[in-house]
């Protein structure tokens, strides 16, 4: 697997790995079949600014790197800004992903949204542009191009 140096760096030295006790919002996405499960914790202050973000991920190198950098990218952002967060930002920040791993960046986007959804549910508020996370399911964009043996 040809990963960029940035992906390898975030895999080898993941930033913001861990949990947040009593987090404002927690999102878990992915499924066992594809082998990626991401959990993102957000700490959101009264002004609606993300003060802290942490992740835990079961998955490949790209899954760990994308969830780690996603926590960095949303930190300090307002909720509105975070709702507009896309996988493209993740891919760009990592200097690109192999085509077969693009789905990891989509999963990271979903995990952030799922955490924001959880926050809105806990607060009993409606956030424009946010839909409930789909139930442990995700579109895949795997290619079938580098089988070995």
């Amino acid at each position: 697997m040809q990963y960029s140096e940035k992906v390898m760096d975030y895999f080898m030295n993941p930033r913001n790995m861990g949990e947040i006790e009593n987090a404002s919002g927690v999102g878990t996405v992915g499924n066992a079949k594809c082998g990626d499960i991401m959990k993102i914790y957000l700490d959101i202050d009264d002004e609606g600014v993300i003060r802290d973000a942490k992740f835990k991920t079961f998955g490949c190198g790209a899954a760990i790197a994308t969830s780690s950098i996603a926590t960095e990218l949303v930190m300090g952002k307002t909720i509105d800004e975070a709702i507009g967060f896309t996988n493209q930002a993740v891919t760009e920040a990592l200097d690109g992903l192999p085509p077969v791993k693009v789905h990891c960046s989509l999963l990271a986007e979903d995990a952030v949204r799922a955490a924001l959804w959880d926050y809105s549910q806990k607060k009993g508020i409606t956030l424009d542009g946010l839909v409930p996370p789909s139930d442990h399911d995700h579109d895949h964009h795997h290619d079938f191009d580098d089988d070995d043996e």
């Binding site: 594809c34 082998g35 490949c60 077969v100 795997h142 191009d145 580098d146 089988d147």
Partner: peptide, 8 residues
Amino acid sequence: SACTSGSL
């Protein structure tokens, strides 16, 4: 792992 074979 699926990730190492390139398949789903």
